[in-house]
Each structure stands twice: as C-alpha cells, then as structure tokens.
Simulated scan of single mutants.
Amino acid sequence: MTVLASRMLYNRVSTLGAEDRGGSLFVINLTELLDFRPNRSILRRNIDEVATFNCTVWTADCRSDGSPAVIGTNLGAALVDLETGVKSWLLRGKSDVLAQQLVHSGNLVLCGLRNGAIVTVDVHEKREGFSARHASHRIRHSPLDSTPGKSSEKWFKLSGNIHPYHTIKMPSSIACLVSLQFDDQYFLASSMDGTVKLYDHRIIQRGAVQTYEGNVNSHTRLQLGVDPSERFFISGGEDCNLRLWSIKSGELLFEDKLTNTVTPTVCWQKAEAFKGLQDERQKL
C-alpha cells in the first residue's frame, strides 16, 4: 500500500494488487476521522475507490493541490484525475516503474524503472484517454556488464511524451526519487545497489553533480527523507544503520545502528506542522 502526499484533510492510497486482481487508487477523507474516534464504520464510508487497474501498482504521487495523481505500474506510468477517475497512460514500456516523483512545477514526472533508467515525462500535454497511442522512442541502455565478448542489450523501447535526452541510467533498479523544492531542477535518486546521486535537469547528460557514499542496499526500496530546509537527507540501510548526509557537500554526517530491523521509510517533521503544534500549545 502506498500513501500519497495530499492536501490537509485528504490522503490518496494505492493498493499493489494480486495475481487475480490489479491495483487500485483510493481517496480517504480524513475530516470526520480527525473529529471523532476512528472506527471501522467511519473509515469505510470515508474511503472512495477512484480507479482500478489490470496491472500491478508499485508507486504513486500527486500534486500539492491534490489532483491529478500519477501511478507507476508494471506496464508503465499513468495519470489519474482524482475528481473524475479518468485515467490515461503517460509512459508505456516493459520495465516496471518502481519510483515516481512529480516535479514541483507540476508539468513533469520522474519515473524510475526496474532496469535502472530514470525517465522524464511531460504530464502537461492533454491526453485522449487510457487507450491513446504515444510516440515510440529507442533509449540507449548502458550495459551493466562490460566484460569483453559478453553480449548485452544496448537499447530499450518506451512510448510516451518523454524527453529521451533527459533519460539517465543508474547501476541497478531505481529505489527512490526526490525532487527538491528550493530549485526543482535538482533531484536525488537512489538505486538498489546502494548508489545515491544528485542530478540537475539542465546538465543531466554530464552525469551527477554529487555522489553520496556509505548507503548499504542490495534489493530493498529504501526511501530517502529530505529535511524541510533541504540541507540534509536521511536513509535506512540493509545493515540496519541509519545515515545522514549533507546534500551540498555529500559528506556522511551521521551513522548509527538504532534498530535491529531495516528502516525502509523515513521522514522529517515539516516545519509548518511543528509551528502549528507550537501555536496550539500557546492557546492552552
């Protein structure tokens, strides 16, 4: 299950799906749940299924104004209007979309694929429905094994309104993507081999502008948590350590084993939420 960022009183939830049924996208109205003690009957009547899919839903994201949402599936990436439930494909391909991030301007979405590619997709262009056809692109696939004489696929196909020259490749499947708010040309990307890098859309073909050492991962979808000031980010590791890096310098600032289990998801308390809590305490 994936919970999406949202407006104050609503959450968006997507379900992964199973062999006999695809994933779904839900809207949860939290207004009544915040006013009363939560129970099963209240929860049920405040959950609306917006859209269903005949495929696996791996990830989801939505704009700050709450609509629309984007989802990543085993067939590609789709756009869903949360008011009407209308859905349309943004990206089609044979490699699962495991990570997504809407750029804060709202016109672009980053899609991280199982094959290690990060694709930039334009979501601003109007779509004609879920069955609409898109332009096909051949994307260069950097081989992971450069052993002389070993054959490897050097190209893969994608269809959609993508920016082929903004497509980059990481060493393994993409685990997490985070677009920075202070300048949405920058985004953090991590892959399942432990690689973490900072990219700039404007010079993306030159490679990463910063690399972060020390992350431990082999196959887990570990999430990166960026602090509200966007000076630091934090991540759990498969060695059960929690680590903190400086975004600007790339320096590993903190490392300690705080739990005996892997921490796949981390987050920071937002400054606005903390200020609101202080205001409430002052009223008491």
Rank of each mutant, 00 (worst) to 15 (best):
T2C: 13
V3K: 08
S6E: 08
R7C: 11
M8Q: 11
G17L: 04
A18W: 04
D35E: 14
S41Q: 13
I47S: 06
A51H: 05
A51L: 02
C55A: 10
V57Q: 04
W58N: 13
T59D: 09
S64I: 07
P68F: 13
I71P: 01
G72V: 00
T73R: 00
L75P: 02
A77G: 08
E83R: 15
E83V: 12
T84M: 01
K87S: 14
S88H: 04
W89H: 07
W89T: 01
L90T: 09
G93H: 00
G93C: 12
G93F: 04
S95W: 07
S95Y: 09
A99V: 03
L102N: 06
G106R: 12
L108V: 10
V109Y: 05
G112H: 01
L113D: 07
R114P: 00
G116V: 07
I118D: 04
V119P: 01
H124V: 06
R127P: 13
F130E: 11
A132Y: 11
A135T: 15
A135H: 14
R138K: 15
S142E: 15
L144S: 15
S146G: 06
P148W: 05
F156E: 08
P164E: 09
Y165N: 14
H166M: 11
I168V: 15
M170F: 12
P171I: 04
S172P: 01
S173L: 03
V178M: 00
F182W: 01
D183W: 01
L188C: 00
L198A: 01
Y199T: 01
D200Q: 07
R202H: 03
Q205K: 15
G207V: 04
A208E: 09
Q210T: 11
Y212R: 04
G214N: 14
N217W: 03
H219A: 13
H219Q: 12
H219P: 02
D227E: 10
D227M: 05
I234Q: 02
S235T: 00
S246A: 15
S249H: 03
G250F: 00
G250V: 03
G250T: 01
E251R: 10
L258Y: 06
L258N: 00
N260D: 15
T263G: 02
P264C: 05
W268C: 03
Q269V: 14
K270I: 05
A271S: 14
A273S: 13
A273T: 13
G276W: 14
G276H: 14
Q278L: 10
K283R: 15
K283F: 10
L284R: 10
